[in-house]
Design a protein around this nucleic acid. Structure first.
Lengths: 354, 354
DNA sequence: CTGAAAGCGCTTACAG
DNA sequence: CTGAAAGCGCTTACAG
């Protein structure tokens, strides 16, 4: 802990100037010259004295005063559906890290995936005069992004994409294709998808990627095998139950577009007496820390969540600098585990036995 | 979206004053008088005109300028071990809600439970001139809290307590006692505890509460049955494996001081061929959203995480106002589920059969 | 009831 | 190389 003496009043430029008997503008200039020599700002000796004293007194510039002058706050606003979703929390960790590295602070707020709340939280951020916004919760067809553009607010999208705006996401389409390849090659032909919320590009793209590849492989994917769902465990359980309730052949494999939904579905299947990994394959998405540690380890597609958050910051900095930036889709990787290891043969046998 | 015109420059008091042909101080006074009549600030009519125009132009005061004058930022700093821990993320949701209600903004940072990082993050928050700090990651014996007191920084503790400083926590001791009662009354006599990190009061108190009550009931609790652990699934799995590896009688029940550790332990037990809920009872803590939805639903002690976060803000506001505040321990509640339903008789039978 | 001034802490041309 | 001034947007006694 520095001797920053923050008790009542922090050290100011004026304090330093008075103690050295020089003008505050000189102190300011020195502290802003990056070169050691302080070229143009002050004599070498003055510069040294200023820096030494600043350090000794634990000087740290008042960010409010600086902002008022420079009209920039070095603060970034981040809006996510909910931080209690580990996926978004991890992306935010990446945001925090990268923002700190470029000396930016971050405000985060939860929008609970509600359109009104998204707007409300964005307004709060803008009232705080953040320099830019990272939106992790964009909905398909939302008009918020257009309004932000009209108001010249610098922003980027994270986690979910929206055509026409820069975003940092996982390559969800490719991830969906990986799952299709895996299930097809292990012999499955009858599959279902727990597809997530229809307003989220993550679920939509993962589903589309799967279906696209499945068709290329010659598979069939009837529309009623694609179930929209909430993204949490409860949503996965409901979709899993719905799947079992339906007439007709039970699928031998289920692809849930995120790990939490997959876990909920596993619960539903188990409650119905099915053994996941034997009677039925289940695959999730994101490869959260839980997946590998579950009682029945879950096959999942890893999305580089930290990296997605980090890149979002990098992109936002360029947008704030007035540059055009292209969207990034981070590569996805499949991790096969026990929940889908038996393959369709085992699954069929299991179903007959059950 | 208001007509807040944020494009390049936001509307200022000066703009409003100019348009109305009055002085900015009058505008400021009106906008600060809470009563409709603006008693003392301006005539009724002037007040009305000011307010109407402010609304029309979407005026929102510049927080940096306000802070510079008032020397308060209305910003709160929150430090947590990691937001990807759903427990802390949920507490933070409570913090965000309560802070927004009192018109405060919040910065959050992850310290990864590292002492240096805690200090570093606290310094960043203070350099940002937050009005107060909420620490969700205090370590037993940490000197950081003392340093903050010396520097007159208003702060409160959340999640973990530290004797002598105000904290908003779950009544972890009582929670531990609930688990002891439950396991004892279902016939268990041989139990083990996966106790979490020794620097965290949560794990320590939950363990102490359990042991205290266990002794009251006449139970025995050898020291080697208490295993420190990390708080995540991986830590729970390691502790679970360690437990099985040991010589001597395997316990019929295991209390893990948080849900994630419990899930990891369940994985280890299952890998060893044990069926949780039949061969062995497992109990967790926090009752995160996952617990009830797991393939084998997990018995857990519910801690009111949102409320813990909300109270932390209320306490901090009072500390910032110079009041003395007492710590709050929020009541805990036990939810019994399949993971511990069979009781010791079932557990013993299961063990013999296996 | 309203105006005018001072000042929060900083930055940045502009002189000299 | 260094000083002096202006001003970012606001609040708050102080006059009148």
């Amino acid at each position: 802990m520095d001797s920053a003496g923050r008790g009542r009043a922090a050290v100011t430029l004026k304090d330093l100037a008075a103690e050295l008997g020089i003008h505050v503008s000189t102190v300011s200039r020195v502290l802003h010259s990056d070169t050691d020599v302080a070229r143009g700002a002050a004599s070498k000796e003055t510069a040294r004295k200023v820096r030494d004293l600043a350090k000794l007194r634990g000087y740290s510039p008042d960010p409010q005063a600086t902002s008022l002058r420079t009209r920039r706050t070095r603060a970034i606003g981040v809006i996510v559906p909910r931080l209690s979703d580990i996926v978004l929390a991890t992306m935010y960790e990446g945001v925090e890290e990268a923002a700190a590295e470029s000396n930016h602070s971050t405000f985060v707020m939860n929008s609970h995936d509600d359109l009104d709340e998204q707007r409300r939280k964005a307004e709060i951020m803008l009232a705080r005069r953040v320099d830019g916004l990272i939106l992790g919760d964009v909905h398909a067809g939302s008009s918020l992004v257009d309004d932000l553009v009209k108001r010249h607010v610098p922003f980027v999208l994270m986690n979910r994409r929206y055509p026409g705006f820069p975003s940092s996401t996982c390559d969800d389409t490719a991830g969906g294709r990986l799952v299709a390849d895996h299930l097809w090659s292990t012999g499955h032909r009858s599959v279902a998808i727990i597809a997530g919320e229809t307003y989220a590009s993550t679920g939509v793209d993962r589903t589309a990627g799967f279906v696209e590849r499945w068709h290329e492989l010659g598979g069939e994917m009837p529309g009623d095998r694609i179930l929209p769902s909430r993204f949490d465990t409860e949503g996965g359980r409901q979709a899993g139950e719905e799947l079992l309730r339906r007439a007709g052949e039970t699928p031998t494999a289920v692809f849930a577009v995120n790990d939490f939904a997959a876990i909920g579905a596993m619960g539903a299947f188990r409650a119905a007496g099915l053994v996941v990994g034997q009677d039925l394959a289940v695959v999730g998405f994101n490869d959260t820390s839980l997946a590998a540690q579950l009682p029945i380890p879950l096959t999942s597609v890893r999305s580089p969540m930290l990296e997605i958050g980090r890149s979002a910051v990098g992109m936002l900095r360029r947008v704030m600098a007035g540059e055009e930036v292209a969207s990034i889709r981070h590569p996805a990787e499949l991790f096969v585990r026990e929940s889908s290891e038996a393959g369709a043969v085992g699954a069929r046998r299991g179903l007959r036995a059950g």
